[in-house]
Design a protein around this nucleic acid. Structure first.
Lengths: 178, 178
DNA sequence: ACACGATGTGGATGCTTCATCCGTTTCAAG
DNA sequence: CTTGAAACGGATGAAGCATCCACATCGTGT
């Protein structure tokens, strides 16, 4: 990746800045350009697709999530490690609406893909350990757990977000063995 | 509601027929008109908004769901009644992608609203009974349960749909008290 | 049977949004 | 300072959406 020219870096920052100021669902690139004080073409040059822009907005959160996953994986108690990881994932996904897209989409940059792969590796280990320890239902794959977390995210978003912990708790206890 | 003229009825049927042939997410009304062999205006006259069309497509499923809810509510075992209702709701929602929209949207016809209200009444009763019987967590509202079901639906859709029962079971056991 | 008002039809049309192209400007290396 | 490469911006065309209105069809009353 070649170093960015100074004006290009300035434009990029302005675009990301403006993008952060509006809900991710109504990202109209044309308006975004006006908002950021740059031309439309500039937006499209920096971010060829909407997904690319979303990825740039959420890569930081993804890094943070990977960090938290590492910490969770280091927890000696497999059950605790699992619930911590699930909670972290849900929390980050709720804070950054684009994260789910990046985690599921195929058209992400190699940087995001790298982080995602690392996250999945960690999560797979944590899940396997939790199952081995008898703390979590053994009939679920990582993919299924991940999708359930996305489902909870969806459920929380349908409300005002205040019952995040409660809904998450329902699913976590559903995943756990008594 | 005045009786439909014969040609109007024919057009309406054609439109609904064509609409059923494509995924609800990509309902482009213009193409739909061509597909159905009618003019664009005809589509818009019969169904002023996309939601109106979706509602027409799913009202039958909604009626069926209300029926199932009545049956479930009649079950003498409160716990069984609850899980049956949850399963019915999830199943119907998965079969008819538009159902969730109709259940949550504000801009539905009075017919749909009536059915929906009846469904919610039944569901509220079933939930209250299940809680009273000690079968279900007492700290959840009907709205929260409904949203969780929508969440499961979302999770199933993210996959190929084959693990519907499994994912649903996770949430149901999360809702249940041991 | 038929005439006529009411109801329904179809596609041309204008409007909004999206994304690309290309002439002009800005940067920074030599 | 010169120069070529990189970036900029807005005009532009393509695409979807929903409306409008001139014409066709229905079915009722005579």
């Amino acid at each position: 990746m070649p170093t960015l020219r100074s004006d290009a870096a300035r434009s990029r920052a302005r675009i990301l800045d403006a993008a952060r100021r509006q809900p991710i669902t109504e990202l109209r690139l044309n308006d975004l350009a006006r908002e950021a004080g740059v031309g439309v073409a500039t937006v499209y040059r920096h971010f060829p697709t909407v997904t690319a822009l979303v990825e740039a907005l959420t890569i930081e959160a993804l890094e943070q999530l990977v960090d938290e996953a590492r910490t969770a994986a280091a927890d000696p108690d497999p059950a605790l490690a699992f619930t911590r990881l699930v909670r972290s994932t849900a929390t980050r996904q709720l804070e950054h609406q684009g994260l789910q897209t990046v985690l599921l989409s195929d058209e992400v940059s190699s940087a995001a893909r790298g982080l995602r792969d690392e996250l999945f590796d960690l999560a797979q280990t944590v899940l396997t350990n939790a199952i081995t320890a008898g703390a979590v239902r053994p009939d679920l794959s990582l993919d299924q757990v991940q999708r359930l977390v996305c489902g909870v995210e969806h459920a929380v978003r349908l409300g005002d977000g205040s019952d995040r912990d409660l809904l998450l708790d329902v699913v976590v206890s559903g995943l756990s063995l008594p």
